[in-house]
């Protein structure tokens, strides 16, 4: 059972990762990553890490990647136009990747080839994770609160559209048009006016302009 599950979900993860690499539109890359995360969650279950498996789904797939998808939608990110330096980057990228992979795989096969992994070999209970978090790992756990504070502050500082000191737009008009408010923007770290105020013009695109761009303009 274990090998079969490993190969199925490892294969899904692999396919997702490769798809992530070859897809050119960011939205498909993001969704491939969601698939990878789902498959990894199953592998985590196989490795006895229940809590991590579900946190992987809730936090990674359900929150972080949703944020990505949102931003991709808001920025209307599409296939980027090819540019000169792509070739150079690929010339560096392929050998670097290959070298690193061969190195790592070689080491792993040699060092850990004989260590078996079996289902139920080691199961981490959720309660044990909680215990460790508040005893052994108390300091890192508390320090992450600073990390979050930095994250929230930074996101709001960079992305929130600040009302200018004097010329704040009357809130009611914006709200009536169904435009996300500051609170939502802070929650999602997206610009509140991105849809309503036609702030973001899509990057120059050769093909016909999709309807989202128009939606952005008409929101007000």
């Amino acid at each position: 059972m274990h090998p079969a599950l490993f190969f199925i979900f490892g294969g899904i993860a692999l396919a997702g990762a490769i798809n992530l690499l070859v897809q050119r539109a960011p939205i498909y890359s993001a969704l491939s990553l969601v698939a990878v995360m789902g498959a990894l969650a199953v592998l985590f279950l196989l490795l006895g890490a229940e809590f991590i498996a579900f946190i992987q789904i809730i936090v990674y797939a359900g929150a972080i990647m949703v944020l990505f998808v949102f931003v991709i939608m808001l920025l209307n990110a599409d296939v980027p136009e090819p540019t000169r330096r792509s070739k150079v980057a690929q010339a560096i990228g392929y050998p670097v990747m290959a070298l690193l992979l061969v190195e790592l795989a070689g080491f792993f096969a040699a060092a850990f080839g004989a260590t078996p992994v079996r289902t139920g070999g080691y199961l981490v209970q959720v309660a044990a994770v909680g215990q460790a978090l508040f005893h052994e790992f108390l300091l890192p756990f508390e320090v992450t609160s600073v990390l979050f504070l930095v994250g929230v502050t930074g996101a709001v500082l960079l992305a929130a559209r600040r009302e200018e000191r004097h010329g704040a737009a009357p809130r009611a008009t914006r709200v009536h048009a169904g435009v996300p408010t500051r609170a939502m923007a802070e929650a999602l770290s997206v610009p509140p006016n991105a849809m309503g105020g036609a702030v973001i013009e899509p990057a120059p695109q050769p093909e016909s302009e999709p309807a989202h761009a128009r939606a952005q303009g008409d929101g007000r």
Partner: peptide, 30 residues
């Protein structure tokens, strides 16, 4: 599992390529 439900809504709105769908999905997702 419930946290994944948001993908259905967000993708529906975006892929329809219509402004009402788009706004609806943004609202729903957030």
């Amino acid at each position: 599992v419930m946290s994944l439900g948001v993908y259905g809504i967000v993708l529906a709105g975006w892929s329809s390529n219509s402004k009402y769908s788009f706004l609806g999905s943004l609202r729903g997702g957030s």
